[in-house]
Nucleic acid binder design. Structure first.
Length: 268
DNA sequence: AAGTGAAGCAACCGCGGCGTT
DNA sequence: CAACGCCGCGGTTGCTTCACT
């Protein structure tokens, strides 16, 4: 795979690396170690730019780099770290020895992100995706019309107005909450900074985010549904009308649907 | 068997942070 | 303290492979 080989005007080679180039880079670093990437290519006898050498080394050639498929555990680790760190691939990679940031990023973009979306989870906020494009039902009392002749009984696939209202609110929370400030706060959390070993970190993640993980014997594509009855019960508890009126985007939402486990308690 | 789109992977590009002058 | 250059990071692109029709 990779890109076709070509040469820049100054003679710098671009594109896919050959085995010969790999050998040269490895041999040089074995002897001299990683130094100034700018001059390394010349010293190593490579017609590459320093950036390209660095990328090749860290993503592919360095000792201990793990290639091949990601294990379910690794995937869960990525998802969990992403939920707190966002797209900080280098930071996430530090917690996963052997995996490069590029590898993790690629796996996220090509696989995990889509899988979360399929499962009804917003990959950016790690909160449930709310489908607002659901067809309006005649049984709704808050939509002003009940003239449809195609009336059908309420079901989980045709949420009532109350469900849609809650979904709308939740979407608003999700879209506003995930930001740099939140990430900064999390990064400054000593409980995260103190995570050292991979095992410890995974246990911590399971503790912090365990509820978002499907159990081992659970199908990965199990869909998280906003059950109408539970949603109604939830709304009664939180007084949705008041919630929507007083909601201030610049301040943290009064109900962390995800973090508090409320999502699990009420909506699963 | 051929066509087509999705998935996976490797590498490039551009920007921001940081150290040096 | 501003200017400069290097490095690292995240986003994106381009290519191959695979799966499905």
């Amino acid at each position: 795979m990779g890109r076709a080989t070509w040469f820049e005007a100054d003679g710098t080679k671009r594109g896919e690396w050959t085995e010969e180039e790999d050998r040269k880079l490895i041999a040089y670093i074995d002897v001299y170690g990683i130094g100034d990437w700018r001059f390394l290519p010349h010293k190593a006898g490579l017609q590459r730019c320093g950036k390209s050498c660095r990328l090749r080394w860290f993503n592919y050639l360095r000792p201990g780099v793990k290639k091949g498929k990601f294990t379910p555990q690794e995937e869960q680790t990525i998802i969990s770290f992403h939920s707190t760190l966002g797209n900080r691939w280098a930071t996430i990679a530090q917690q996963m020895p052997g995996r490069s940031d590029n590898d993790i990023k690629n796996h996220w973009n090509s696989c995990l992100k889509k899988r979360l979306e399929r499962n009804g989870i917003d990959p950016m906020t790690h909160k449930p995706i709310i489908n607002l494009a659901v067809k309006t039902q005649s049984s709704n009392t808050d939509c002003g019309s009940s003239s449809s002749s195609m009336a059908s009984p309420p079901s989980s696939s045709s949420p009532s107005g109350s469900v849609r209202l809650l979904n709308k609110i939740a979407t608003g929370i999700s879209s506003r909450q995930h930001g740099v400030d939140r990430i900064k706060n999390i990064l400054s959390d000593p409980s995260i900074a103190s995570i050292n070993s991979q095992e410890e970190e995974f246990e911590q993640l399971k503790k912090d985010h365990g509820k978002m993980f499907a159990s081992d014997d659970q199908e990965e594509d199990d869909f998280l549904m906003w059950d109408e009855e539970k949603v109604r019960h939830f709304m009664e508890e939180i007084d949705v009308t008041n919630f929507e009126t007083n909601f201030n985007p610049s301040s943290p939402p009064p109900y962390g649907v995800y973090e508090t486990g409320l999502f699990d308690n009420h909506l699963i």
